[in-house]
Amino acid sequence: MTLAKRQGGGLGAALGFILAVMVLIPLAVGPDQNLLGKLAPGLMWLALLLSVLLTADRIFQQDFEDGSLDVMAMGPLPFEFVTLAKACAHWLTVSLPLAVITPPLGMLMSIDAARLPMLMFSMIAGSFSLSFLAAIGGAVTAGLRRGGLLVSLLILPLYVPVLIFGVAATAGDMGPSGSVPALGVLMALGLMSLVISPWASAAILKAYLR
């Protein structure tokens, strides 16, 4: 399954997107180092979110078009496992690398170096649910030719909690009790999406096969 995904990912484009955003943000906000440092965690989370979103509509599209999903649906594995594997593959090939690569880019935004490990840690924790929720959106648009906008509309509201707690964990010291509870919630969100997403995307894809 991971093998099948290997060539399909849009990591390159997503990475390029993040870089472009990183360049654009200072241009939009102005080169004020203090302001940038303050905004950086939130903006970087936003960049991560959007770039994962960018790849979401491709998760199932190819398999749907070439008929692989037909055969997978008939196989001995429950279809939920197929979607689970797909989402995991997406996480491993897109979200996780992005979550690892993005924080060092924070240096460009004059982010406080002491915060970087926390940023990376929270992004890795959050990227899990990002991929799994993206799979739901990917399933909805598997059979549509231009699903990009629909994916954004559907998935962005689902990303709200991840964004809130992700930034909270990153910004840590702002909160009353540090970033540990936020990290916990972030992981809980990941678990929740782990439960819901394979089921939901399998059911949606089945509707397309029908």
């Binding site: 739901i136 509201p157 709200v160 909690p161 809130i164 707690f165 909270a168 909160g175 949606i204 509707a207």
Partner: peptide
């Protein structure tokens, strides 16, 4: 097909409404 998919999205949405409510409240107090 639209009906089946919309059903699932609505159900996922209901779960999410509660999660959003909870997290926005939390964010708010923060």
């Amino acid at each position: 097909r639209a009906a089946t998919i919309a059903r699932i999205v609505a159900l996922v949405g209901v779960v999410n409404v509660f999660v959003v409510k909870f997290s926005v409240n939390w964010w708010n107090t923060l």
